[in-house]
């Protein structure tokens, strides 16, 4: 790894100031960033840890009933503490392994937007609001393709607000090596309709499966899940063809609906 200067501010304001330097990067749990830096694929000159900021930690319920999770809250803490939103708690409890869940954070995962990560599916299916030091971004606007988000340089996710659905479930079919999602589907049923978000499958990264949303909004049952989406634009690699991934999208959606019903 290249060397860098390390800072661990205790407030959001100080973190934003520290990130103002060119070539500075925010470090949350580091479970993706540090391995990337070990491979020398990232070379920040300054690393700003967000883990010393207490206002970015923790879980609470907002006035509108949404579950609000501090950006630097670990997956383990969400798994244990998000009982108000069991589908999301289960998602967090299934990321990586226990040691990874102890360090990795919701903000870090969403900022990285790995196309096979779990959290993007949860946030998008929930219609979450990504709160940064500067603004609030709707999930539908936030995810902009693999590893790409609406975040500006040095903008940090301070909180994520998840509207709590009536029913929800996340189904992950693991890639056998990395244990990331080969395909993951999050289904969330709200009073005004069903949202279905798919991770792992598409070259566009996390996305909504609108055909399924429409069908399930009309009839929330596994039988209502439409035929698998087309394979065009699906990821093909060592672990599965595009057609296989497309097939899994439908299978997992059915399973998620069945589990949520």
């Amino acid at each position: 790894m290249y060397n860098f200067e390390f800072e661990k501010p205790s407030s959001i304001a100080d973190a934003v100031a520290a990130l103002g330097d060119e070539e500075a990067t925010a470090l949350s749990g580091g479970q993706t960033l540090l391995p990337t830096m070990k491979q020398r694929l990232a070379s920040p000159t300054k690393v700003v840890s967000l883990l010393g900021i207490s206002e970015m930690q923790g879980i609470c319920t907002g006035d509108d009933g949404a579950l609000c999770i501090g950006g630097a809250t670990s997956h383990a803490d969400v798994a244990a503490g998000a009982s108000a939103y069991p589908g999301l708690a289960a998602l967090a409890g299934g990321i990586g392994d226990p040691a990874v869940r102890a360090r990795g954070t919701v903000g870090g995962s969403l900022a990285n937007n790995d196309p096979a990560a779990c959290y993007p599916a949860g946030a998008l299916a929930s219609g979450a609001t990504i709160v940064t030091n500067a603004r609030e971004i709707a999930a539908d606007d936030y995810f902009q393709g693999m590893f790409t988000t609406a975040l500006d340089e040095s903008e940090i996710i301070t909180e994520v607000r998840f509207p709590v659905p009536q029913a929800s479930n996340y189904q992950k079919f693991e890639q056998p090596a990395s244990r990331f999602a080969l395909v993951g589907v999050f289904v969330a049923k709200y009073a005004d309709g069903v949202r279905v978000a798919v991770t792992g499958a598409s070259e566009e990264g996390v996305h909504r499966w609108t055909a399924a949303e429409e069908a399930l909004s009309a009839n929330f049952s596994a039988d209502a899940v439409p035929a698998a989406p087309g394979a065009d634009g699906m990821i093909a690699d060592l672990h599965g063809t595009a057609a296989y991934r497309a097939h899994l999208v439908a299978v997992l959606t059915k399973r998620a609906v069945a589990a949520a019903s």
Binding site: P176, A177, L238
Partner: peptide, 24 residues
């Protein structure tokens, strides 16, 4: 039998070059 596969692409790049792709 179920998991492991050291796979090369046609250019001789090892596709399963870490535990991210070589399934232990």
């Amino acid at each position: 039998a179920l998991l492991e596969n050291a796979a090369y692409d046609e250019n001789g790049q090892l596709l399963s070059a870490s535990y991210m792709d070589y399934a232990m």
